[in-house]
């Protein structure tokens, strides 16, 4: 038997790692593809901004403060992935990656809002009849954050290995990863188109 906190933390963690919900993994990959291990502080802030974004809308939906069309959200999620991946592919993106204007941090926050709405039906169903929402919600989001950081670390290790072994330079690797993310996002948009 475990505590409520640990149970919901674990659920958040497993939800991120779940390959059936790979749109989330894909967003994190697109968000981080352009950065190198030495940029870890920036990456941590970006990922956290994303978590704060989706925690907010998830909480609001769980508390029934906002409602929205689920099919629209499901379509918008791959749009955020495509947009993020496309930014990495812009000419000069690689060179200016160290330059961090505010919008670069606001973008994952705003995109986080959209992803949070995608979670909310999931989360609502986890709540019991009378318990408080706040604690499980907090634990669930913390689990998601932990899972996301795990994905970043795995991606960094993978890129380090591939670049070392296959002698691919970072700009090529960035384009390769971002290109794949963009293609998969397009595929998801096709699948979730609601008109």
């Amino acid at each position: 038997m475990n505590s409520e906190f640990y149970t919901y933390f674990q659920l958040g963690l497993q939800h991120i790692a779940d390959l059936n919900a790979y749109d989330h993994i894909l967003f994190i990959v697109a968000l981080c593809a352009i950065y190198r291990p030495e940029d870890w502080k920036k990456v941590l802030i970006l990922v956290t901004a994303f978590t704060i974004g989706h925690s907010l809308t998830l909480a609001m939906a769980a508390l029934d403060l906002i409602r929205f069309r689920q099919e629209l959200i499901e379509f918008l999620i791959p749009v955020t992935i495509l947009f993020t991946a496309a930014l990495n592919l812009l000419p000069g993106a690689e060179k200016s990656r160290q330059h961090m204007p505010l919008w670069k941090y606001l973008l994952p926050l705003v995109f986080g809002f959209i992803h949070g709405m995608g979670f909310s039906n999931y989360f609502k169903s986890l709540l019991g009849k009378e318990e408080s929402v706040v604690k499980p919600l907090f634990a669930f989001n913390l689990g998601i954050e932990a899972g996301q950081i795990g994905i970043v670390v795995a991606l960094m290790i993978l890129s380090f290995l591939v670049m070392g072994l296959a002698r691919i330079k970072q700009p090529v690797w960035t384009r390769l990863v971002s290109g794949i993310a963009a293609v998969m996002a397009l595929f998801l948009m096709w699948e979730t188109k609601f008109w």
Binding site: L19, N20, D23, E191
Partner: peptide, 12 residues
């Protein structure tokens, strides 16, 4: 498997 996007398999 993308068709399964967001399907949620939890019971309480």
């Amino acid at each position: 498997a993308g068709a399964d996007l967001h399907d949620i398999h939890v019971s309480k």
